[in-house]
């Protein structure tokens, strides 16, 4: 799934996949931190953002 998104021009660092059990709270926090860091570095998303006007 990620491969086609990357193929059509969505930055690879914007889409992440992980497998976290409900018992893995610390892993969840780690993953979310990593993702926010990467996405913040990319800046706001401008693609696939529908304009309603």
């Amino acid at each position: 799934m990620g491969n086609l998104l990357e193929h059509v021009g969505i930055e690879k660092e914007r889409v992440h996949f992980s497998w976290i059990s409900s018992a893995e709270a610390t892993k969840f926090v780690d993953v979310v931190k990593k993702i926010t860091e990467k996405v913040r570095a990319l800046g706001p998303n401008k693609k696939l953002k529908k304009q309603y006007n």
Partner: peptide, 17 residues
Amino acid sequence: DVKKIEAMSSEEKWDFF
């Protein structure tokens, strides 16, 4: 043909599609 698109940057890919 697919490899040609894969070699593009994210912006170029977006514009291509």
